[in-house]
């Protein structure tokens, strides 16, 4: 689901870089405001490696094969750190393995980073909605993990359908895009389950990993709930 070089018009690539720059700047600003901005960098580095490797895991769904993205998981675990982690991971995937592209790095980072941040926001909603029990946390994690990839697929589909060149058979290309979008439905569910499993595991062994990336207000709410 990485858009390679030569597929999108230059203006769209430029807009992708602009949105990625804005999202990254805002994320770094939020990170800088934390009491210890360095504290979560090791975790972000490790999950960058996981994100980098995940795209090698292909799931054959004839007639095509798809691969894991894990942007929702990164959003849930890393919060604002997810955006720079995804950007770095995509950069290495494009430079070393031509998976994606340099001109489309901005677009790809927005397609995967923005849903990751929304997944983070959704996961933090559990504090507001008082869904902090084990079952409720797992359910919210599933929705957040699935939303991360689901939204990325919708953005991928929307960007590519809107920019099909006139010299191509538009109906054929649109049908192929619809097929690849539908083929991601099982992956959306798989990533939701994976996110749930990771969150439930962390909840058991080291629950602070799920709360130390929460906004200050949410943490206070959690401590009030005891």
């Amino acid at each position: 689901m990485h858009i390679p070089d030569g597929i999108l018009p230059l203006a769209v690539c430029g807009a992708g870089y602009a949105t990625t720059a804005t999202l990254t700047w805002y994320s770094l600003r939020q990170i800088q405001r934390r009491p210890d901005p360095h504290a979560m960098v090791p975790r972000a580095a490790l999950l960058t490696a996981v994100f980098f490797v995940a795209s090698w895991i292909h799931i054959p769904l004839p007639p095509i094969s798809v691969h894991l993205i894990l942007n929702g998981l990164l959003g849930v675990i890393l919060g604002w750190y997810a955006m720079p982690a995804i950007l770095v991971g995509l950069f290495f995937q494009a430079v070393m393995f031509q998976h994606g592209g340099i001109t489309t790095l901005g677009v790809n980072a927005t397609l995967m980073g923005l849903p990751a941040l929304l997944a983070y926001g959704l996961f933090q909603l559990r504090f507001v909605l008082h869904l902090t029990g084990r079952f409720a946390t797992g359910a919210v994690a599933f929705v957040a993990g699935a939303l991360g990839l689901g939204l990325a697929v919708l953005l991928f589909y929307g960007v590519l359908v809107a920019t099909i060149p006139a010299n191509l058979d538009v109906a054929t290309e649109q049908a192929a895009l619809t097929l690849i979008a539908l083929a991601h439905i099982p992956v959306v569910i798989i990533e939701g389950i994976l996110t749930t499993l990771v969150v439930l595991f962390l909840l058991r062994v080291k629950p602070e990993l799920l709360t130390d990336n929460a906004p200050v207000g949410a943490t206070a709410l959690l401590s009030e709930q005891g």
Binding site: P42, A45, A49
Partner: peptide
């Protein structure tokens, strides 16, 4: 499409390993 066709499997493993080790090294350092 979407591959590093000119590289052998060993080269791919070494290249991927350097990135992964870079991330792990960053984590250990910090």
């Amino acid at each position: 499409v979407g591959s590093a066709a000119p590289y052998t499997l060993l080269q791919l493993i070494v290249m991927g390993g350097t990135v992964v080790w870079g991330c792990i090294g960053t984590a250990l350092f910090l």
